[in-house]
């Protein structure tokens, strides 16, 4: 009884500020002049389908690249010999963690612009034409820059839980570092890696700042940008919400996996 009473205010906040607007998004997306309609989804399909596909593959590709880089960094930090290079990398790779996404977006605007630092460097190295980065390339670079260190940090915490004895035993049996990674570390931390991937992918799909500041209204762009335009320029909540529901669907498989994993663990860790 006392327990329910103490949880009640938090529950109210979630119901009023989250669940209600969440449900509203679904409701509005199916509501037309006279009841149930699919016309808003029709418009999403006609006008924004390219962006839906674009959001999916850029988010997924970025998460895959970030996962591979994260695994490599974590494996090196777990298996590599202790030397100055390792402690240097151990400090270095964490820097992007300290930057909020809006700062990363501003930074990438200067770095990836047609006349930005990267193109300047490439020009001085002999490339004749500047590369246009304010499209999927910039988006993927920004996501990976920000996500790979997180993946490395999460995966490393998993790798550190694998006991030294397992690794030593494999090494004594003649396994290379690569085999230790693929046959000991990764199989033993499969869930940690999967959770890190699900989080990175879901947060890429949900990110508004980076595509908004890098790509803006140019086509193709991310769903989040379309939602903002639909609302701020047209006051069109119906299409915006249909797009919103599509973005829920894009993360749903990963979200359900993550939620099940979390509720199953039922443990609370800091």
């Amino acid at each position: 009884m006392l327990g329910s009473l103490l949880v009640l205010p938090a529950l109210l906040v979630i119901v009023l500020l989250y669940l209600y607007p969440f449900g509203l998004a679904v409701w509005i997306s199916f509501s037309g002049e006279d009841g149930f309609t699919l016309e808003h989804y029709q418009r999403v399909y006609e006008v924004y389908w390219e962006d839906v596909i674009f959001t999916f593959w850029t988010s997924f590709l970025s998460a895959v690249i970030a996962a591979v880089l994260g695994i490599l960094i974590a494996a090196y930090l777990r298996l590599g010999a202790d030397d100055p290079i390792k402690s240097f990398i151990n400090q270095l790779y964490r820097i992007p963690i300290f930057l909020p996404m809006v700062v990363v977006a501003q930074m990438m605007r200067g770095f990836l612009a047609p006349h930005g630092t990267l193109n300047m460097a490439l020009f001085n190295l002999g490339l004749s034409q500047p590369i246009e980065f304010f499209d999927w390339k910039g988006l993927v670079i920004g996501f990976v820059w920000k996500q790979a260190p997180f993946m490395a940090l999460i995966i490393l915490s998993g790798f550190l839980m694998v006991k030294d004895e397992h690794i030593e035993a494999a090494r004594v049996a003649g396994a290379s570092d690569l085999r230790v990674l693929t046959e000991i570390l990764l199989p033993m931390t499969r869930n940690t890696v999967a959770i890190a991937f699900a989080l990175a992918y879901a947060s890429n799909v949900a990110t508004f700042t980076l595509p908004y500041m890098l790509i803006g209204g140019a086509k193709p762009t991310a769903i989040t940008v379309d939602i903002a335009h639909r609302v701020t320029f047209f006051g069109d909540w119906a299409t915006a919400n249909a797009l919103g529901v599509v973005s829920f669907l894009l993360v749903s498989v990963f979200a359900v996996f993550y939620l099940r994993e979390m509720v199953r663990r039922g443990v609370y860790e800091r």
């Binding site: 607007p21 998004a25 879901a202 903002a228 915006a240 919400n241 919103g244």
Partner: peptide, 9 residues
């Protein structure tokens, strides 16, 4: 895990 932007809208 679910995008917050539609909720904010």
């Amino acid at each position: 895990v679910f995008p917050l932007q539609p909720v904010y809208v």
